[in-house]
Design a protein around this nucleic acid. Structure first.
Lengths: 199, 199
DNA sequence: TTATTTTTGTACTAATTGGTACATTTATAA
DNA sequence: TTATAAATGTACCAATTAGTACAAAAATAA
């Protein structure tokens, strides 16, 4: 069992997860196609030569950021649940979108949903991966709702899978509705309908 | 009042609305950015020179197809309502998506919603137009729901604007959920939830 | 020092993009 | 026939795209 990570030659100066996280945020903001390699390199803070020495391609990096997004989100939700309970953790997903809209006038939406739409029928491998990550996260939401039901935070008699599915569907709907330029009154009512689902 | 549309020179051989309709379907299938001018020309069935003699730019054509989409949809809904009543007309929107999924394994979604997501924060003029067309259609849906309520087809005591907003939101959510690769069980329940909104 | 590895810098490729220029052909009215 | 407008065909443009090649510099272990 050698823990000797010291190898000969110049040591790596950047952390792979760190640059992938930066890439993830750039893809999240701009989408996959609309992210040029040059801009991506600036966002990641590494040069083209280092990029291709570390990763296979732009698609490879995008794929890794999708996995990272799912992973970081699930970690975030686990922590949040410990702090504020499962129902409040679910409501936080919605509240983050509301806050983002109030503060910036825009919403980015879920990276997986955005990428699903963008890659649908165009990038087979990515689409399959997105489906996998999406269902993984959906299962986590279901578990959260089940937890909230067990704790009597949610009275809704429907089963957890149904509640989680409808809540996330309405939330993802809200994002595209905002992005299509809906009026505030409609947005406000959709927020109200989201709360009702978790009652 | 001269109705003499006959002008000197070679008469136009293509109908503007016809080629715009073809352009609309291509944009609907592939999105704005992912539609290259060359492919668009093939879809429209005209040559580049005719294209630029008739339209200003690719964006100009896209903008015109967005208006056309809204117009054709509203016309379609008007006719449908006369035939099957307002509630059934609304349900048809959902049924068309279900049928499309069953028959082709894919869903295109609403052109305005798709374009809203694609143009959001990138194409200012288009975004503004999309917002306009979207709210125009949303108002029509509200009127349809009101009609259905007046005819006692819908018992839901919530006001028409709320019901229309929630129904369309859930339907647009369903599309992105499918495109993200959701499992059939989730899709089926979301369809059930859509029906419940119109009860 | 020397071997090794990372990182950088520069130059390049081939393909694709939306759009322009312009001469030629075709179909009509006068 | 002649003037006119529509349509075609061909050639071009400058910018951008993801990705490659390779030499040089920098940082470490041995």
């Amino acid at each position: 069992m050698k823990t000797n990570t010291q190898t000969r030659g110049r040591p790596k100066t950047f952390d792979e997860t760190e640059v992938l996280t930066r890439a993830m945020h750039y893809f999240w903001e701009h989408g996959y196609d609309n992210t040029s390699l040059d801009n991506l390199l600036v966002a990641m803070g590494i040069k083209k030569s280092s990029f291709y020495a570390t990763f296979k391609s732009k698609e490879d990096v995008f794929s890794k950021t999708l996995a990272l997004y799912r992973e970081q989100n699930m970690q975030y939700m686990r922590n949040l649940k410990e702090k504020v309970g499962p129902k409040e953790a679910m409501l936080t997903l919605m509240n983050l979108t509301i806050k983002e809209l109030e503060e910036t006038g825009k919403v980015k939406g879920c990276l997986l949903i955005n990428s699903g739409k963008e890659c649908y029928n165009r990038y087979d491998d990515l689409s399959k991966q997105i489906s996998h990550e999406f269902n993984f996260m959906q299962d986590m939401f279901e578990a959260l709702i089940q937890d909230a039901k067990d704790k009597r935070e949610i009275k809704n008699p429907k089963d957890a899978k149904t509640i989680a599915g409808r809540y996330m569907n309405a939330l993802n709907g809200l994002v595209v509705t905002i992005q299509a330029g809906a009026k505030q009154a409609l947005i406000d009512d959709l927020i109200e309908s989201l709360k009702e689902i978790l009652e």
